[in-house]
Each structure stands twice: as structure tokens, then as C-alpha cells.
Design a protein around this nucleic acid. Sequence first.
DNA 1: CTAGCTTCTGGACAGGTGTCCAGTTTGAGG
DNA 2: CCTCAAACTGGACACCTGTCCAGAAGCTAG
Lengths: 193, 193
Amino acid sequence: MPRTTEAPRARLSDRQAETVRRLTEAAVEEVAEHRYEGLTVRGVAKRAGVAPATAYTYFASKNHLLAEVFWRRLRDLPEPDPLPGGSPADRAAEALSAVALLVADDPALSAACTTAMLADEPNVLRLRARIGLRVHERISGATDASPAALQAFELAFYGALVQAGMGHLSYRDLPGLLATTARTIFPRTEECP
Amino acid sequence: MPRTTEAPRARLSDRQAETVRRLTEAAVEEVAEHRYEGLTVRGVAKRAGVAPATAYTYFASKNHLLAEVFWRRLRDLPEPDPLPGGSPADRAAEALSAVALLVADDPALSAACTTAMLADEPNVLRLRARIGLRVHERISGATDASPAALQAFELAFYGALVQAGMGHLSYRDLPGLLATTARTIFPRTEECP
DNA sequence: CTAGCTTCTGGACAGGTGTCCAGTTTGAGG
DNA sequence: CCTCAAACTGGACACCTGTCCAGAAGCTAG
């Protein structure tokens, strides 16, 4: 009986996991060439050397596929050091900057992932929940500020991510922006009685 | 020569403006019945008593149509009273709560508008720019806090809107959440020396 | 080696999308 | 009342999407 791995749909055999990996890699390449609009599941399948029907076995749509790309990168992101140097604000900003920069090397990819993540589909929804949880863990692990401050910063993070995904902000500016925002939200809590 | 009105595409005659109005109204009804996924431009056209080709004359896609619905409501929203009672935080929260609640009466509609607003299409992009400008005006008009605080709150607002659009937050909770967030971000500036 | 499962294939399918255009209706100006 | 341009119609079009399934190919246990 074949081994299994964590998977986009359920449990996968090694062979299936490899197919899925090739598909997600091909998706990254396709999006780099054709951007979000130009990417099709059939195109990704072709590039991955796989029949379209096979791709659809694992991914219900291109949004599902791209969301999986983001999720895999986030999953593989090492946890931030627990309480390293710096103020609570800096630690929080750093913890989320890493997430914001996950796909920042390729602008087309980051835009595509953002769009995909926002899709209203069951599979995307499931991935989004996982991602949201991970983000929440990262930020609450990075600082012990008040829940209201944490929530405010988390909201601002998603706002920034969406703005960047829509092209209103550059991904490269996100770390700086998050740092400024964190300093606006967090340190006051300590300074004021 | 017929009068013209501000329009989704360009300048419209009275007759065209009426057609567009009927289409946006029909869209609201359709989305209430069939939700975002079930809405089709052809369905909206039928309900509005108009040929599909006519609908496509004014709206390039269902996202464009739904974004227009949101934009029209925002356009018709009265400006917040300039500096009424309350702290800067309360004023800011109030100014943006009104925006968040624009489509909150119908959950399906609010979700649909959120999804549509995030689409990567030229027409939606144009509307988004207008809406972003309007939001920015509202918040900067409501308080004279520092630019960093304003930006932080604006980001949090969009974050909250997206979370609500994705169903992670209830629209009804947004005003309270925005108030809490505003109080976390703003008043400190004044209270601390 | 082979039986029997798992995985992949390739092509057909129904449905939806946005575009186009020749032809009809509408209504304002003369 | 008539003219004529603006606005709408309806149906055909090419394309894309996700689903399905019968059969081929690949692996693994016996």
C-alpha cells in the first residue's frame, strides 16, 4: 500500500503527490508567462506533461490551483523566531512581512495568487481557512499585545495584501508599510497607562 | 440632442441611463435570488426586460455590473457631517461604517459586490479607483490624525471589508469592529505626550 | 509472471461567456 | 407628420470551462 502525503484534496500516494507537485510548479511558470488571465488549467496540464482530466482530478479550477501554490509556500515557511530582538511592533511586522513576500519575487504570481485566494469556491475556501489560521498563529506568536491591537493589525495586513494584489501597492513596499502600521498600532499600548 | 448623465462606460442619454438603472436594479434582485455564482448577465438582462446584447453594451461582465451597483450606492451616500461630536476615532469609524453597510442589508449582495470589486478587469479597475478615492476622502475628512494612522485605519477597513465579503466576518459586526479598531489606532496619538 | 488495483488518458459533452452584426424600433428635431 | 440617427434586438459565433467515462498504462503483492 502506497505512502500518503498532505494533499490538495485528500490523501495522496507518492505518485499522485509528484503529479500535484509538477502541476503547481507548472502553474508558477505559466502565470509568469501568461499572467492570471492567460493561465488555463489545460495549459498548466500540458506544461506539466499531464492530461487535462488528470489536472482536474486534483484541482477543481485555476483558482484552486493558484491558492494551493500560495498555501504550499506558506506551509514551507519556517516559523518566526519566538520573541527575537526588537519591539513587539517590529516582531509583528516581521512575522507578517514574510508572508506578504512569499510570492513577491514574481509580480504576476503575487497578483494571481491574491485574485485566486479571494475566489468564492469551496476548495479555495478550505485553503483560505488554513492560511488564515497560520497567519493568525504567526502574529499572535510574535507579540503579546492586546487582542484588539492584534486584530487591528491582522486586518491591516489583509488590507495591504489585497491592495498589493490589486496593484495599488507594490509588494516590495509591504514590509515597510507593515512596519509603519505596526508601530502605529502596537507600542502605544505599552506606553500609555 | 438628448441630455447625458454620468455613466458606467461614457456619457449616456436619458434613455440609456434608464436602461442602465433597470439593469443595476435587476442585478440586485437576481443576486438576492441566485447569489453571485448563479447570476448571469443574460439573466439580469431578461429580468430588466432587455436583450442580452443590450446589457453587454453597458457592462462588459457580471463583475462590472455588480461593481457598478456598489459604486452607485456609494455615490449616493451623503457625506458624513464634517466634524460632528465624538472623538476622532469615532468619527473615522462612523465615516467608514456607512460605506461598509452600503450593501449590508442583503448578505448575498454584499458578498457578491465584494467578489466583483476584486476582479481583475479594466472596467472594475476604473470603478475601484473611484471608490478608493471616495473612501479616502471620507476618512481624511473625518479626522485630522497623522497620515500613518489614517493609512493604517484605511488598510484595516479594506481588510475588514474583504473578510466580511468572504464570510469570515458578519457585515453587521463591522461598525463595532471598526470602532474598536479606530480606538486602537487613533486616540493614542492625542492621549500620549 | 500475472492478477488486480490505482492512476492517467483522450475525447466528448453541456453549459456559459463575451462579441458581432444585420435588421427593427424609438423618439426628437425639423 | 416625416426623417434619420440613436438605441435596442435576437440569434449566430468562437471560445473556454469543468465533468464524465471507457479504456490504456503503471505498479505492487502474491
